[in-house]
Each structure stands twice: as C-alpha cells, then as structure tokens.
Design a binder for these strands. Structure first.
Length: 418
DNA sequence: TCTGGGGTCCTAGGACCC
DNA sequence: TCTGGGGTCCTAGGACCC
C-alpha cells in the first residue's frame, strides 16, 4: 500500500511550485494504481552550519563561541603583535547587512539567517562578527562534493552546501552507504553534514533537518504519519512565509493537518496547481528525479547602497553603480560563455517597494556597453518619486555567444523599435 | 531594528499569428 | 460580418530557495 508514495505522481521543480507539464501527467499515472515505480532511495546531504563551520576551521580559537557571519564588506580579524587575533563584535556594527549564517552557539541566542545584523546584535551583542569568505566556502564546497561524487555519481547540486544523491541502486544497503558518505565528507573537509534518506527528494530534504547536526535520518514510507505529519507545514520545501500565513488562517499548521485538509477550501486560497501540489506534498508524494545538470537561465548583479540615493542629487554615483553592475554582468556572461537577449533592471526604493523593467533586444549580447544602453532604456520607464535603496541588472533569454550577432526569430522583429 | 545577493519558477494581461 | 480559440512572445510582479 505504501507504494503510492513511491509511484506517485506530482512533481515540483526547484522552489517547490508545481509545473504545468509535470502536473498534467498526474491523471494518467494515478489512474493506474498497478503501475509501480521501482523503490527509490534519495539522500539529501546538507552541510552543518556550513559557512560558520569553515570559519571555525580558519579560526579554531573560536570553537564553541557564538559567531555570526555577515556580508563580505565587514571588517576582517586583525592579527595582534602577540599572535592572537582581534575579532569584531556584533555590538559595534552599524549598517544594513543581514546575517548569512551563525554557529549553533549564536543560534541559541535567537540569531538566524536573513536577520538584520543590527537586530541580531541586540540579541547577542558579544558575539563575534566575521565577513563572509566565499572563496573559502567554494573551495570546501568543491571538496565535499568531490568526495561524494567519488562514491556516488548521481548528484544534484542545490546550492553551495547541499546536494541530492540518488542511492536507489544500493537497495537495502542505502542506509549503510549514506553513513559512508558522511565519513567521506568528514575525511575530505573536517566538516560534519546531515543526511536525510527517504523515497524522494521532498522527504529526504525534510529528513536531513530532523537530527542536525551530524545526523543520519532514514525515513520509510510507513513513517510518514508519525515522523512527518506532526511537523509544521512550513518545513516543506516550497511552503514559504506567505503560504504558511494563509494556511494558518485556515487553521492548518502541521503537515498532517494539510494532508487532511479539504481541497475545495485550499483552492479558495491557492489555485488549482498549487493546491494539488500542497496536497500531494503533505502526503509525502514527489516524483522529481535527481537532476545532474541544469542550464543557467539568467545572470544578475545587484547592490544595496549604504544610504538611500536620490535620482537627481546622486546622479553621478548612480550612473557609476549602474555601469559597474553592467560590467560585472558582462564579466559573468563571459566567464560562463553566455550571451543574452533580455536585459532588465531592478530598483528597490526607500520604502522597500520594488520595481523591475526589462527589454528584449533583437539579438543577444554579452557586451557591457550594449547592456548599459538597454538598462538606460529600461530606466526611462521608471517613475522616480522615492529615494533608491538598491539597484540591480539582470540578463536572461540566454544563448551561446556565437549566436549573439545572429538575428532574433522573425517574429521578434515585427515588434516596433522602442 | 527594518530587511543581502544570486537565482528559479509561476501568474497574468496584451499583442500578435494562424 | 462577427466571433473564437490555441499558441507564443513580451513585460511586470511576486513567492520561494540557498
């Protein structure tokens, strides 16, 4: 009977939201209950407090301390004449940064990712504040992923510190194999990770979080009611703050409550596709494969100013920032051997409202000057009544740069020049 | 005490084609 | 003459994730 969880149907792409094409497969598959997919074992491997743990390798004297990692613009530790290091303290911070991550000791004070550093400083004023060192994190990321890849080839990159691994071929040996992976990651990096092992990605992701840090959590389909249903619905990857609030307003807090919710009631809030996905997710159903590669869809750069800027008075600074962002986007395109046709800007104002404008060019480009010209076209369409907090540049509709001078599809040329 | 930066995907309306 | 329906592209905004 549990095979419904394995053979099940709905799929949710990255971000957790339903995808029209995949959902349309649902009816045909679920209407034939005898169609049994082979049992899958999917592991979700999540490094424990990754950035903070890398920092502790760099600065072992901080082990056990409450340490917070902020953005890259923060003050570096200062080496003293006596050989010890002087670290910045949270209470001395002034600015607009947010917490990237924190050690478990800092989390005990209530300091978590995405919190403003100023707010975090009030909760833990004596905590140590370190700048993010992405070069080091990328280095350790490569190491742990390579260590896993040496043993298990079917890997999906999720971010710098997370992967999914398809361990189906190991059958009953999958749990023991997952333990081997943990050991291999530790050998390669000196860092611990947590692994969730389950019949699909959705459940594996939930599981890896259940026994953090240094956990290995195995979930069988028959455990869903006891181990998954009591958890808050927001533990499902794809149910964020907005959906959580809407669910709570309907009296739905746990995954179990969501599983039993009336679909008609859910539909009044969410629409057909998301409703269907919510229901299946609550039942632990997820058929998405482990995807070993994906193509880049967009490239962007953005920056938040240290103070809000005025269009007229700060025109020179804004122009300079815009040009710099375009140059960086062009550099990223070059690095990835890509060009793009749709150039867009993003503005966030002092009241945190955000607008975007974009324009699709007749042919793809990777040239900073061409990107800059396009962003200026976009900027002309923005009403400037408020001070600007953030400026961003994005390029999408990407292709191979060898096609960048090629004419766009005939249809696009029919549009009047803007 | 206001909230970074780099992404993906979905929705929805209008233009346009067949 | 009037109506319509499917499909694709473009644009803007928003939810969500790490």
């Amino acid at each position: 009977m549990h095979d419904q969880y394995l053979a099940a149907t709905i799929a949710s792409p990255r971000g957790g939201k339903p995808n029209r094409r995949e959902v349309s497969l649902t009816a045909s598959v679920s209407s034939s209950p005898e169609s049994l997919a082979p049992r899958r074992w999917i592991a979700h491997l999540d490094m424990d407090a990754f950035f903070a743990s890398v920092e502790l390798l760099k600065y072992p004297e901080l082990r056990g301390e409450a340490v917070v990692i902020g953005g890259g613009r923060l003050q570096q530790p200062v080496l003293q004449p006596d050989g010890t290091r002087q670290f910045a303290r949270m209470r001395d911070y002034v600015g607009r940064g947010v917490v990237t991550t924190s050690t478990y000791a800092a989390r005990a004070f209530g300091v978590f990712s995405a919190m403003g550093i100023m707010k975090a400083a009030r909760l833990a004023p004596d905590s140590i504040l370190l700048p993010a060192d992405f070069e080091a994190y990328r280095e350790y990321s490569t190491r742990f992923k390579q260590a896993v890849a040496n043993l298990a080839p079917v890997i999906q990159n999720v971010g710098i510190d997370e992967i999914y691994i398809d361990l189906s071929e190991h059958g009953d040996g999958a749990p023991a194999f997952a333990a081997r992976l943990k050991a291999a990651v530790f050998d390669a990096t000196g860092l611990s990770c947590s692994i969730g092992l389950a019949p699909n990605k959705l459940l594996a992701k939930i599981c890896s979080d259940l026994e953090k840090p240094d956990g290995l959590t195995i979930l069988h389909p028959e455990d869903i009611a006891t181990r998954v249903w009591p958890l808050p619905a927001k533990k499902i990857n794809g149910i964020g703050p907005k959906a959580t609030a809407k669910l709570a307003a309907m009296g739905i807090v746990t995954i179990g409550e969501l599983a039993q919710a009336d679909l008609g009631m859910l539909r009044t809030q969410f629409g057909d596709l998301y409703t269907g996905w919510l229901h299946q997710a609550a039942l632990g159903i997820d058929d998405r494969p482990v995807q070993t590669s994906r193509e880049t869809k967009s490239v962007s750069r953005e920056t938040t100013f240290e103070r809000d800027l005025q269009v007229v008075r700060d025109r020179a600074v804004l122009s300079e920032k815009l040009e710099s962002l375009c140059t960086r986007v062009a550099g990223d395109l070059d690095k990835h051997a890509l060009a793009g046709r749709t150039v867009g800007i993003k503005l966030r104002f002092e009241d945190f409202s955000t607008v975007t404008r974009d324009i699709t060019l007749p042919s793809a480009t990777a040239d900073a000057a061409a990107i800059l010209r396009a962003t200026r076209d976009c900027l002309r369409r923005v009403p400037f009544e408020k001070k600007i907090r953030l400026l961003g540049v994005r390029i999408s509709t990407l292709c191979d740069p060898s096609q960048s001078t090629r004419q766009a599809p005939a249809q696009a040329e029919l549009f009047p020049a803007l």
